[in-house]
Each structure stands twice: as structure tokens, then as C-alpha cells.
Write a protein that binds this DNA or RNA. Structure first.
Length: 406
DNA sequence: CATCCACAGGAAGGACGGGGGT
DNA sequence: ACCCCCGTCCTTCCTGTGGATG
């Protein structure tokens, strides 16, 4: 019997442990950074010019995902702000979320203490109010535009121009722009006048190697006071996996987190290599499930058609067979069918996503076709798709079919 | 060796919708 | 408020093709 006390107690215990998983969240910025000394040095050499009342250059930071770009820049921002809050203002903007010039100027204005409505002002008015506020504040404004490629692809580079324009009109304050991106081509595509005004300095963040990832993971484990939760060999194992997959530290930390969670759930502490393997396949499984869920309706039905054929015992499933099965299923769902030409493309899409493997083969006299094989267990596909409202009606026919096989 | 199957996959264009500019 | 542009999805029409078979 589960009473109030029992249920509360259970989760109280689960959540009151001494460990703290928030150290493994992607958004967590550690207060010490390792294996980025060189990059921090380059950035700080430039930014520390403000101590001499000089104006630092604008900067561009390049590097693949999980190379520490964002963490380093936030770390530096915090350090500078805590050292001289009234002289340095740090404005961080993720352009994937804030992708218009209004929110950029808004954030800048806010950090200078201006009163600005979230929406409604014309760009002219906004620009001038922000400029006045920034000037009045008389400080160095370090604006970080994370994923700046998103921003530029959407809006062009006019805002960079406006900002540098604002900068040249300022007397008591200065604006420094730091762009972060994993797209190296972006600078080359900038307008020439923006390019020359930006006067930028570049910093490249290389991927981490295995030992560096190991150190980073170990550091996080220590921060979280979870040293006893994982064996050293398991930690090395995770580092090796992550190093193989492009040296992405974020992914490595994610894998570490999932591994720990699984160990805690199974009450099997410290976690070992086998838990890492479980975590890895769980993450891959989740990713596949997510992909399948987000597929367009017709792609889902095509996928079910393949499952249908497979359950029926067909091997070497061809496009034609899939299309027939698809027509049957779509009849039951009662929506208009697509043409076989489109199904060809959908099959190619599924192939690209790795859900399906499609090979073009010739059957001589019997024509040329693709033979298609599932790369995901049919059980998984059915368990996900047959739950969906629109596809529930296929349950019976799918069931009948697999029973027929037995 | 020519044939011919059962598709692959390119080209062009229509319908639609969202988003940004004026 | 309106329009225009662009991307996505889909259809129609089409040409191309590897190799078992007659």
C-alpha cells in the first residue's frame, strides 16, 4: 500500500542525496576551466586592454560544438564583471533564441539600465535610446553573439554595422563585439564595409583529445562530489568514446550524466563500463525514438508499411511492395495517398536518417528496384507509432498480420 | 545479344504557408 | 494590412538503366 508518507519519503530520499546533478547540465558554467589556457590567454590579452583605458578589438571565436567556446566566454565575462562591475558590462545573447536586432538592442539597453518595452518601439527610437543609455553608463560593453551565423543568415550583417556605427558615436563608453560560431565561412561572407569596421581578431578552439576530456570529466565529478560514484576505468571509457566522436565535451558530459543516473537507478554504485554501454544505447535509442516521432505523417505510414511487410515475413522488400502495403494502410487511415514518386523520395529520406537501409539492385528481367531493410527494431517503431491518435486504427491490421506469420 | 522489366531519379511546376518588409 | 519572396511538399512527365531471360 502506498500512503502519503511512503510516496513522499521515497522521493525525498531520492532527491536528498549529497550529490548534485546540476553540474552535468549543458548550461552549467564551471568556475574553473581546464585545457583552454591558451585560448583564454589570447582573449584576455585583448580584453584586458580596458585596464589601460584602451579599446579591445572585436573578436570571432571558431570551434565545433563542445569545444568550450561558450563556457570560456561566459567564464571570462563573469570574471571581468565581478572584478569591475561598474566599468564592464557583459551582454550574452544566444542568436538561436534571440535572432532579431530588436532583442539584441533590447539586451544591450537593459544592461545599461534603460527602460525599454519588450516590443513596440521603432528601430530608430530603440537605437537612439540604447545609444544614450550606453553612453551615460560610461563603461565597456562586451556583447557576445553566440551562434552568430544563425543571426547573420537570417538578418544579414546590418546590425553589426549599426553597432560599430554606434561605437564610433560613443565617447564615454565602448562596445566590443564577440561573435561565436562553428561556421568558418561566415566572416568571408560579411559585407566589406562591415568587415573593415569590425577589425576583428580570430580565436580557434580545437576539439579536445581523450586525455583532456578525461580531465574535464574528472573535474566535474569532483565539483559534484561524486568521486565514489564512478570507477576510473569507466571515466576513461567515456573519454575514449567522446574523443572518437569529434572531441565533443558536451556530449561526453551528457554521457557521464546518463551513466550516473542509470547507476543510481539500478543502485549499482560505483558505475562501471557496462553502465556506460547501457547509457550509450539508451541515448541512441532515445534519439531514434525522437526522430521517428518527429517524422511527417506519410513517412510514418511508409515506415509502418515496411514493418508490416517484415512481420509478414517478406525478405528483400522492394519499393513496389512497400507502395502496395502503403496503399493498404492509407486506406485504413482514410487519407489520400501520395504517388509512388513521392514514396521514392520518402524512402531516400528515411535512408538518410539511418532508420532504413536502401540499396538499388537489379533483378534483371524483373526490373530494377531498391531493396529496403529496417535499421531499427520493428517493435520500437510499432510501440511509438501505433500510440499516435491518427495511427491507432492500424493496430488491428498490424496485429493480424504478425499473427498470420506465426 | 537484344530485350524489357520495374523501378530510380531529374525537371518543371502547382499549392501552400510562414516570415519579413513596407 | 498587404504583398512578395522563398522554401517545402507533392504531382506529372519523363528519360535512364543492370542484368536475367528468351
Amino acid at each position: 500500500m502506498t500512503g502519503y508518507e511512503n510516496i513522499i519519503e521515497k522521493y525525498l530520499i531520492e532527491n536528498s542525496e549529497e550529490y548534485n546533478m546540476s553540474y552535468f547540465e549543458p548550461s552549467y558554467v564551471p568556475d574553473r576551466i581546464i585545457h583552454r589556457e591558451e585560448e583564454i590567454d589570447i582573449i584576455m590579452k585583448n580584453l584586458s586592454l580596458i585596464f589601460k583605458k584602451m579599446v579591445p578589438k572585436n573578436m570571432f571565436i571558431f570551434g565545433k560544438t563542445g569545444t568550450g567556446k561558450t563556457a570560456v566566454i561566459k567564464f571570462i565575462g563573469r570574471a571581468l564583471e565581478s572584478y569591475q562591475k561598474e566599468k564592464v558590462r557583459f551582454v550574452y545573447l544566444n542568436c538561436q533564441i534571440n535572432d532579431n536586432s530588436y532583442s539584441l538592442l533590447y539586451s544591450l539597453g537593459k544592461s545599461a539600465g534603460a527602460e525599454i518595452p519588450i516590443t513596440g518601439w521603432s528601430m530608430d527610437r530603440l537605437f537612439n535610446v540604447v545609444k544614450d543609455a550606453v553612453e551615460l553608463y560610461s563603461a565597456y560593453f562586451i556583447i557576445v553573439l553566440d551562434e552568430i551565423d544563425r543571426y547573420i543568415k537570417k538578418n544579414g550583417d546590418d546590425i553589426l554595422y549599426s553597432l560599430s556605427l554606434m561605437n564610433s558615436e560613443l565617447k564615454n563608453s565602448k562596445i566590443i563585439i564577440i561573435g561565436i560560431t562553428n561556421d568558418v565561412t561566415i566572416i568571408e561572407n560579411l559585407d566589406a564595409r562591415v568587415k573593415s569596421r569590425l577589425n576583428e581578431e580570430k580565436v580557434v578552439f580545437p576539439p579536445y583529445n581523450q586525455n583532456e576530456i578525461y580531465d574535464i570529466l574528472k573535474d566535474r565529478i569532483e565539483m559534484a562530489k561524486m568521486k565514489n560514484y564512478i570507477t576510473d576505468s569507466a571515466l576513461r571509457y567515456i573519454s575514449a568514446i567522446a574523443a572518437q566522436e569529434n572531441g565533443d565535451a558536451r556530449k561526453a558530459i551528457d554521457l557521464l550524466k546518463t551513466t550516473l543516473q542509470i547507476g543510481i537507478e539500478l543502485k549499482s554504485i560505483p558505475v562501471e563500463e557496462k553502465h556506460v554501454n547501457i547509457a550509450k544505447s539508451k541515448m541512441e535509442y532515445d534519439a531514434v525514438a525522437e526522430t521517428i516521432k518527429s517524422l511527417p505523417l506519410h513517412s510514418k505510414i511508409v515506415l509502418l508499411s515496411i514493418v508490416f511487410l517484415k512481420d509478414y515475413g517478406t525478405n528483400n522488400i522492394t519499393t513496389g511492395e512497400i507502395y502496395n502495403a502503403y496503399r493498404n494502410l492509407i486506406n485504413i487511415v482514410n487519407i489520400p495517398p501520395l504517388t509512388s514518386r513521392r514514396i521514392t523520395d520518402i524512402l531516400s529520406d528515411l535512408d538518410m536518417l539511418g532508420i532504413v537501409n536502401a540499396k538499388v539492385i537489379s533483378m534483371g528481367r524483373y526490373g530494377r528496384s531498391k531493396i529496403v531493410d529496417l535499421m531499427v527494431s520493428s517493435g520500437l517503431i510499432k510501440s511509438i507509432l501505433l500510440e499516435e491518435d491518427q495511427l491507432k486504427c492500424l493496430r488491428d491490421s498490424m496485429k493480424k498480420q504478425s499473427q498470420l506469420k506465426i
